[in-house]
Computed example of a mutant assay.
Amino acid sequence: MKILVTGSNGQLGSELREYLETNPRYETYFLDRRQLPLDQTLIIQDILGMYQPDLIIHTAAYTAVDKAESEPRQADLINHLASEEIAQYCRLHNVRLIAISTDYVFDGTSDTPLTEKAAVGPINTYGLTKLKGEQAILRWAPESIVIRTSWVYSAYGNNFVKTMLRLMTERTEVAVINDQIGSPTYAKDLARAIFDVIEGDDWVGGIYNYSNEGEISWYDFACAIKEIKGLECKIKPIPTIQYPTPAKRPKYALLDKSKIKRTFKVEVPNWKVSLVEMLNKQ
């Protein structure tokens, strides 16, 4: 099977490389933004045609959440229109597609774990463009698998965990938001789940949720990082209102993972177990 992965230098793309490149069953192609420029939509299908994949794992995205507020056209171009081109290619050439989306498609007002059927309502540009990308994918290639995830971190790239590690070694105190609730996602676990989907006997298209198990705030997350690494920095909990950003964030983004566990027999580790695993690499 030929597998093409977009966003090869990102957190998830890097983790997928570890799973797929060493597997002799797969011929893999990992494309970065230079090899597949998603902001040049007119050439996307031609580039994909050069590789003739059987499966595309679309992890690439415009992920600068705050910057998207001042660059809505660029965010839409990459998250929505480029995804539409990829889906059109998949439909025309009978190619399977796994695409990664986000909890930011929700408005954050729920107080119970969000299922795939929960009402969407993005409150920032990034979330809106990702939702439009989802819709375009499922319109053109309805057998595609769209995986919504949240709070992604990894040993690769830039993320909350690595930022906290740096700040906690540079400062005596850091302030972290304590009223945004969800669960982090270790990109290695998500890569493993995608591998399980690919290796499974059945392909069932649609939207799925994936994050690690558990329910925490960003403050809780930071405290766990401090505890595991034995750092001395004081962590001060603050409400969202004290940390204004250009883009609003959902207050509640806990994802219900029942569907992906049931459909693909995916095992979902607890967030702290995965955090320990990742931090042991640092």
Results as ranks from 00 to 15, higher is better:
K2W: 12
L4G: 04
V5R: 08
T6P: 07
G7K: 12
G7P: 11
S8T: 03
N9D: 08
G10C: 10
Q11V: 07
L12M: 03
E15W: 11
E15V: 09
Y19S: 03
Y19P: 01
L20P: 01
R25Y: 12
R25H: 08
E27A: 13
T28C: 15
T28Y: 05
F30K: 06
R33H: 14
L36E: 00
L38K: 02
Q45K: 15
Q45I: 14
D46P: 02
I47T: 09
P53W: 01
D54A: 13
I56L: 09
I57A: 03
I57C: 07
T59W: 01
A60G: 08
A60T: 08
A61C: 01
Y62P: 04
A68V: 07
N79W: 03
L81P: 00
A82G: 03
A82P: 02
A82H: 03
A87P: 04
A87N: 04
N94D: 14
V95C: 15
S101V: 06
Y104V: 05
V105S: 03
F106I: 05
D107K: 02
D107Y: 07
G108V: 05
T109R: 10
T112G: 04
T115M: 01
K117G: 12
A119C: 05
G121I: 02
T125A: 03
L128F: 00
K130F: 02
K132D: 00
E134F: 03
I137S: 02
V146D: 04
I147N: 00
T149H: 01
S150Y: 05
V152I: 15
Y156F: 15
N158G: 01
K162F: 08
K162R: 15
T163I: 10
R166H: 13
R171K: 14
V176D: 06
P184N: 00
T185I: 10
T185C: 14
Y186T: 04
F195A: 08
V204H: 13
G206V: 13
N212M: 09
E213Q: 13
E215Q: 14
E215M: 11
D220R: 11
C223F: 07
C223A: 14
I225V: 15
E227M: 12
L231E: 10
I238Y: 07
P239K: 02
T240R: 11
T240D: 02
Q242Y: 10
Y243T: 13
Y243H: 14
P244H: 10
L255Y: 00
L255A: 06
L255E: 02
K261S: 06
R262G: 03
K265L: 08
V268T: 12
W271P: 00
K272V: 13
S274E: 00
E277M: 14
M278Q: 10
N280Q: 14
N280H: 14
K281W: 07
Q282N: 06
